[in-house]
């Protein structure tokens, strides 16, 4: 966990710049479009699947179809791995009773609150330490020491401090989200092209203007990598915290279902976590694309 906060950041940074989804898919996109020339509607549908974001859903859809087929054929025990249709039924049942929307709401609110607190502090300290040597000397050593403690290892201590209240979850999520935001913001500011900063100075930009026009936009790609990474940590932390100690939320719903051997509800909880994670990442990518239009890697 402690390593995970730094190392994947570097790979994620490289990945974000070098492999935009469209670029990676571009060679594959040509083939089906060229092969299918039978009817116009089919060609455009294939084209849309190949060019758009839809292609990412082909593999999950295929897995669901195979899974359902195997379940119907009786190869899968319903009390081990229920069919997708059973999970959908559970979702409909829990939505009707109001338990599912409420759990999703509670978990999302927790995640966002922790994210805002931890991410906000991480961003602020990253900016401060990136811009001021004094601030970095003062705080960086302490932060690097704390970073090496896996934040989930603090769960027993956090339960002693906060009980299993909201405070415990908020604290853990904030702590987990803090480091990727802090490290990537710092890294982004440090790696702003010094030639551009020099140019800004020669053209008479004052400190404030230099920050808003040169330093912050230059650091933004790296800040977004931190944001996306922090969103991943956010859900991970929340899942663990809710599973261990909670009285509401999706994790609590899953643990309750486990006691009554409701495997379909447990599966549903896991899938909802996956969808929430995907939704958060998609929103981050949309923001990224909107604010990094100038960057060749993010342009359509």
């Amino acid at each position: 966990m402690s390593d995970a906060t730094l190392k994947p950041v570097a790979t994620a940074a490289a990945g974000a710049v070098a492999f935009p989804p469209e670029a990676a898919l571009a060679p594959a996109a040509g083939e089906p479009a060229a092969a299918v020339k039978t009817t116009r509607s089919r060609a455009t549908l294939t084209g849309r699947i190949a060019n758009g974001n839809l292609i990412g859903w082909v593999v999950p859809a295929l897995i669901v179809v195979i899974w359902e087929t195997l379940a119907r054929a009786g190869y899968l025990q319903p009390n081990v791995l229920p069919a997708p249709s059973a999970i959908v039924a559970a979702a409909i049942r829990l939505t009707a009773s109001g338990q599912l929307p409420e759990s999703i709401g509670v978990s999302t609110l927790r995640a966002l609150a922790g994210f805002v607190v931890g991410g906000g502090i991480g961003l602020a300290l990253g900016l401060a330490n990136g811009l001021s040597r004094l601030s970095e000397k003062l705080t960086d050593t302490s932060l690097q020491m704390v970073r090496n403690v896996p934040h989930l290892a603090l769960i027993p201590l956090v339960i002693l401090w906060f009980g299993i209240d909201e405070g415990a979850k908020l604290f853990l999520v904030a702590l987990g989200v803090f480091f990727p935001m802090y490290i990537n913001t710092l890294h982004g500011i440090r790696n702003v092209d010094p030639q551009l900063v020099e140019m800004g100075r020669i053209y008479g930009m004052k400190q404030g203007e230099l920050f808003w026009r040169v330093i912050l936009p230059g650091a933004l790609p790296s800040i977004f990598v931190g944001l996306r990474y922090a969103l991943g940590i956010m859900w991970l932390t929340l899942i663990v915290a809710e599973t261990i100690a909670a009285e509401s939320g999706i994790g609590h719903m899953a643990m309750q279902a486990r006691e009554f051997l409701l495997v379909d509800v447990v599966m549903l909880s896991i899938i909802i976590y996956a969808l929430l994670g995907k939704a958060a990442d998609s929103i981050a990518r949309l923001l990224e694309r909107l604010s990094l239009q100038w960057h060749p890697a993010y342009r359509k």
């Binding site: 551009l196 140019m199 800004g200 053209y203 026009r213 040169v214 990094l292 100038w294 960057h295």
Partner: peptide
């Protein structure tokens, strides 16, 4: 040394 996040005209306005 153009600012990549400013359009061409914006870059000239820096001057």
């Amino acid at each position: 040394r153009l600012l990549p996040w400013e359009r061409v005209r914006g870059n000239v306005e820096v001057g």
